[in-house]
Amino acid sequence: NKGNSEEQTIKKFESYKRETALPKEVSNCRIYVDNRADSIILPVYGMAVPFHISTLKNISKSDEGEYVYLRFNFNSPGQGVGKKDSLPISDPNATFMRSVTIRSSDILRMNEMYTSIQNLKKDQAKRETEKAQLAD
């Protein structure tokens, strides 16, 4: 049954069930990597906004003058040919966040964030592959 399998795909990941689970560190309104919850938390106008690592396609970094820019590219429709993605296609009218760019002059910390987010993404991709192999 197609509907069921789609639903399962959608419900596969969730960053936090309740707000009490948000890490304390979000209070300083900076990017935070929560390995335990497989999530990155981005500051958006005073809110701590989690993105599950499964939504992240990749991250890129650019240095421009006194700032470092991190660009978070998320999985969204119409990207990447050939790669089978697990988009929540049950709602064809959904709007997707395709990318978010955050800049900071704290170069050292931004470099650390870049590395730890890449690591989290790699770990998650590895786990997914292992899971897929087990399922075969």
């Binding site: 969730e14 960053s15 936090y16 069930k17 993105f51 939504t55 959904a94 709007t95 966040m97």
Partner: peptide, 8 residues
């Protein structure tokens, strides 16, 4: 706080 990037 679901961590999803799709919605409205």
């Amino acid at each position: 706080l679901k961590g999803w990037n799709w919605g409205k």
